[in-house]
């Protein structure tokens, strides 16, 4: 939601104006759905929670106190709904307090040393690359993916993530590190093709 461009009138929205609410849904739902999809890893669950989020938001909007931006407030409702779903469906993901910082798959081999930082933005963020980035997150073990999405994609602090999941801050840090290293390795493999193609030319 681009708040500078948004034409939603808050007072109308808070008074229950349906058209303003429809505008709010259109301005915010794409990004919130993407967050839910990354977090839950499942289209149906993401859609269900998206609907629950807006139902809850419509009921709560008269009490919205402008303490945070509207999108931040909505986003927090969506995150809470998603975390509740995860706690109910997969309590084991939250409760595993794995403090083992490294497993064998974290070793870095020669093939994983690819300096893809030097690639141009148009390659790093092309449609195809973005699709790969999405797939790579989805392929993470769930206990790592949830922490990575909350910390690095949603910008929550270590403490907020730990409190939301009921795990220690140290455990958040370890899961985040493992997730980041796994993703870095996957991206190295993916972006290496650009260097191979360059050599072949």
């Amino acid at each position: 939601m681009n708040q500078e461009r948004s034409t939603i009138q808050l007072e109308k929205l808070k008074s229950g104006d349906r058209e303003s609410f429809a505008m709010l849904v259109d301005e915010t739902s794409g990004k919130i759905y993407n967050t839910l999809l990354q977090l839950l890893g499942n289209e149906q669950d993401a859609e269900d929670i998206l609907q629950d989020t807006y139902i809850k938001a419509y009921r709560a909007i008269p009490d919205f106190e402008n303490r945070s931006a509207l999108y931040t407030w909505l986003h927090r409702i969506a995150l809470n709904e998603a975390l509740m779903q995860i706690r109910i469906q997969k309590p084991q993901i939250i409760s595993i307090d794995n403090n083992e910082p490294f497993s064998e798959d974290m070793d870095i081999e020669q093939k994983d040393i690819v300096d893809f930082c030097c690639l141009p933005e148009r390659e790093l963020l092309s449609k195809e690359s973005r699709h790969f980035l999405d797939q790579a997150v989805q392929s993470l073990p769930e206990s790592l993916r949830i922490v990575f999405v909350m910390r690095d994609m949603e910008g929550l602090s270590t403490q907020e993530t730990a409190d939301s999941l009921g795990i220690s801050e140290n455990n958040v840090k370890i899961r985040l590190m493992r997730a980041r290293l796994i993703l870095r390795k996957k991206l190295s493999g993916y972006f290496n093709k650009f260097f191979v193609e360059e050599k072949e030319l």
Partner: peptide
């Protein structure tokens, strides 16, 4: 150094993707 730089880049790319405006 490459591992550090590419790890930073990995995080940066995901932050960028997360801030994209997208339609449902």
């Amino acid at each position: 150094r490459i591992v550090v730089d590419t790890l930073k880049k990995t995080v940066e790319l995901y932050e960028r993707c997360a801030s994209d405006e997208t339609n449902l």
